[in-house]
């Protein structure tokens, strides 16, 4: 177990280096001149322009830029944004907000997804099952921004049940609506995954044995069927945590959440390489760690799986 985990942590190093190199190059290769955009089409004194280029190493060739970036990274200096703030500060403000949003969305889709999925799977072909299937199909088909705008307008503006956008400090209450929108599409997938998996397992031999030995239906469903059906669901949820964190751009835009998505979008548009690389770097770490947790959960869910 220890060996397994340390090996996975060692793997992080090349993955992280590769990802930063790739992202650094991609931002470098996007056309356009960040300094020209900074001046907004107005003139800039040549000496000022040169000083700004030098400050952000934009006057250097790619490999030197990347090398300088790595060099400062070793000393935990993530660089500066064009507005002169430390990237580490900017990340420190944005990540907690997005993390809360993503965890709420994940909890939402995990709890409701599994409950609905189990009920639908156990009552295959009944009214509840069909209703959930059709509803989830609709949710998958409708783009997130449509769901977001519609819910924002009705719940936030017309009914006034929640604020249309997230307020200062991003309180938990304000995040409910955005989290629901963010988790909705994945919710549909979780329902469908759980349902299919339950249907497969409910006729398995060990379920029949459990029922035959007189266990309560509740215990049969929750321990024997559900636990064995959760492996694909957990795999999906683990991978989803990363995409929820990195893929909240649309939701964050609609509800004005000051999180990673908005930050990344702005930084890409401005060509602010240190910010983009740092955000993506952290997202890569989250993906890798989430996958590690998923692997460990396999062992807990299925005693046949062991790590040495």
């Amino acid at each position: 177990m220890f060996m397994f985990i340390s090996k996975r942590f060692l793997q992080l190093i090349p993955v992280f280096l590769g990802a930063t190199l790739l992202v650094y190059f991609l931002v470098f290769a996007t056309p356009g001149d960040p300094i020209a955009a900074l001046s907004g089409g107005k003139p800039m004194a040549p000496a000022v322009e040169e000083a700004l280029r030098a400050q952000y190493n934009l006057d250097q060739p790619f490999w030197i830029q990347y090398g300088l970036y790595l060099k400062s990274l070793v000393t935990f200096d993530l660089g500066q944004t064009f507005s002169g703030q430390e990237v580490s500060d900017v990340l420190g403000r944005a990540f907690p907000v997005t993390a809360r949003l993503a965890i709420m969305a994940l909890a939402f889709e995990a709890v409701f997804g599994v409950i609905f999925g189990v009920i639908a799977g156990m009552r295959k072909g009944k009214l509840f099952d069909s209703t959930v299937l059709v509803a989830s199909l609709i949710v998958i088909a409708v783009p997130t921004f449509v769901l977001g705008f519609v819910l924002q307008f009705f719940v936030g503006v017309k009914l006034d049940w929640a604020k249309p956008t997230v307020g200062v400090g991003a309180p938990w209450g304000d995040l409910i609506l955005p989290a629901a929108v963010l988790g909705l599409v994945s919710l549909a997938y979780v329902i469908r995954l759980t349902r299919t998996s339950i249907i497969e397992n409910k006729n398995a031999d060990y379920v029949r044995t459990a029922t035959a030995k007189g266990l309560s239906r509740r215990r049969v469903v929750s321990v024997h069927i559900l636990r064995n059906s959760l492996i694909p669901v957990v795999t999906f949820l683990g991978a989803d945590l990363g995409s929820l964190m990195g893929g909240a751009i649309v939701t964050e835009g609609i509800f004005n959440v000051p999180g990673v998505g908005n930050l990344l979008f702005k930084a890409i548009k401005a060509g602010e390489t240190p910010t983009v690389v740092a955000v993506v770097g952290v997202l890569v770490l989250i993906f890798v760690l989430a996958n590690l947790v998923v692997d460990l959960l396999y062992a807990w869910l299925d005693p046949r799986i062991r790590y040495v």
Binding site: Q152, P164, G253, N256
Partner: peptide, 13 residues
């Protein structure tokens, strides 16, 4: 605000 759409919804509300 990161975009005016969100601000406009806030204004309406």
């Amino acid at each position: 605000y990161a975009n005016t759409e969100a601000a406009y919804q806030d204004l309406l509300g």
